[in-house]
Amino acid sequence: MTATLDGLELAAPPVQRRGSERPVRPAWPAPRPRRRSARPRPWSALAGAVVLAVVLTWAVAPGWFTSWDPIATSPKDKLLPPGVEHWFGTDQIGRDVFARVVYGSRTTIQATVIAVGIGLVAGSVLGAVAGFLGGRTDSVVMRCVDVLLAIPNLLLAMVVVTALGFGSLNVAVAVGLSAVASFARVMRAEVVRVRASPYVEAAFAGGERTVQVLLRHILPNSWGPVLALSALEFGGAVLAVSALSFLGYGVVPPDPEWGSLIAEGRNWLASAWWLTTLPGLVVVVVVVSANHLGRSVGRWRGERA
């Protein structure tokens, strides 16, 4: 396996055999020595899954969760604090903030799913092609991926969205493109590992055609870590989509979106904290849940294999 890795990957953590690798370890916080827990805790992963399920349902059927119209203005009810009637309070023109968060999840989650989808599909194809073909193709593709990895994701996404123009779909595309590199790396590492395994050699020796080997033997045995990564990336993508919307690249008013809700509320931080804090907490909870679920899935796979 190590023979197929070339020098430029030395900086990255060595690819682990059991598929629980983390492709890009953040520089901060510094990794601490810790006891490796014997078993993942199912309840906490379950909590994460429940949070995600609720938010996905918000996105699909927001009307089930609130009777308020997210864009109906009512200046006489402006800036009401959270209460029984308005769970998250109202904003400066009297709109229900909870309704805006619930309806806003549609845009955010849609954009996130599209972004992760783009990253997953494009990254996997690139990684699989590079890992499978090897040689010069591998070098060229992976060097391009290295270049992409060298650029911070949010910065790359901002460059792309500036080029594409504003709008939530463009934000999704931008975030997706910035995620391609990490998917490509993980996919390539897996494909390289699987390709060197005896059963693949046996398949080639048995006279199977290249495409057949790729589809029947290599891909099914490589996609696990990539899927785990996509759960991890989901959290990151929610954050990236919200960040771009916060900066004003996303939805057009009056449509709600999590990032733009936080942005709109920031002038009221001192007088109406709920405008920013509550949508912000929703983003935090969703991102933490997605990350936790992703890591749990990765760990379970590691134990099972």
């Binding site: 864009i71 203005t73 200046p75 400066q92 023109i93 008013p253 009056p254």
Partner: peptide, 9 residues
């Protein structure tokens, strides 16, 4: 810009 959404409504 603070007028945008109210004007729209």
């Amino acid at each position: 810009t603070e007028q945008y959404e109210l004007l729209q409504a």
